[in-house]
Design a protein around this nucleic acid. Sequence first.
DNA 1: TAGTCGTGGAC
DNA 2: TGTCCAAGACT
Length: 371
Amino acid sequence: MEALNVSNNVVQALEDFQIKTFQENLLTWYRENKRDLPWRKDQDPYKVWVSEIMLQQTRVDTVIPYFNHFIDKFPTIETLAYAEEESVLKAWEGLGYYSRARNLQAAVREVAENYGGKVPDSPKEISSLKGVGPYTSGAILSIAYGIPEPAVDGNVMRVLSRILYIWDDIGKPKTRKIFEEAVRALIAEDAASDFNQALMELGATICTPQSPACLLCPVQEHCRAFSEGVEKELPVKSKKKPPKPLPMAAAVLMNEEGKVLIHRRPSEGLLANLWEFPNHETLSQKGEQDAQLVNFLSEEYEVESCIDDHIANFSHVFSHIKWNIAVYTGKLMGEVKEADDLKLVNPSELQNYPFPVSHQKIIKSLFWKGE
DNA sequence: TAGTCGTGGAC
DNA sequence: TGTCCAAGACT
């Protein structure tokens, strides 16, 4: 038991645990009930990789169309490595957490240059790639290569917290290690891919957060939370802070030719490298917002403008921020010095640039009004 | 460690 | 409408 090197409650939980029966029940259920998903058509490490990055904090149903289109457009390591970053962001548009896309391309370039285009199969090498953390590392190694490494995500922590009766807060970073050691003790060495995917599949379809379908569970007989009647009390998860409201003002400015001004966001931070309509935080009263906007546009972009109308208000919620955007329309007065991050484009060309959803709302309301 | 980093679906 | 969230990683 000491060799397991896990916290005492997990060691205790594993005593008398029927590991072989548990594996068989879980694997049999998975092989009969697994969903037919596009990234399960083969074991191409690149496709497994892309799917795992897209699935981070994102629902399966949301990912499916993005995955199909992405693989269509970038079918191999090489095609992604040599693509323009902007086309990658465009393919990621609307999926969120955009640094995933940029990290993925950076990592793929690393694999193309330093690993001969082959996704590495050692924990140390694969974990060194940008955007590949402990979960994704284990997921790729086990799913693509059959290597018995733990792949502990939210599903696995929820499932195992219930089965093994673990009350550590899964919101704390250090808690994941407890579950990794538990998986090392439970994993079917000769079926690592199916085992890891089965734990996640169980969490996604049966052992769900709100109302788990325990009566349908293939490993119900192994579950201590069920036998104690506390399955809905687990896992323990600390609450997050609500997003902080941030008043914003945005300007859709048109020149005499009917072109609109767009700006590319900085390469770091929120919505990095995506395009937007010029905007800024507003601390002033509503009556002063248009004057503030003219001032901001002049100082930040050396653009002379006048504001005509306050056309709409949009609310957009991020994980930690809530933008309340007042949208104004106006005219560009003089010349605009275009640059890498400042362009004049026809409204019909806006669809060629990656915009965050918050600004897609503006585009839709202004330029697609009839549809 | 706790904060940063998106979005749309479920209830 | 508000709340929680869904196959996390990075700083």
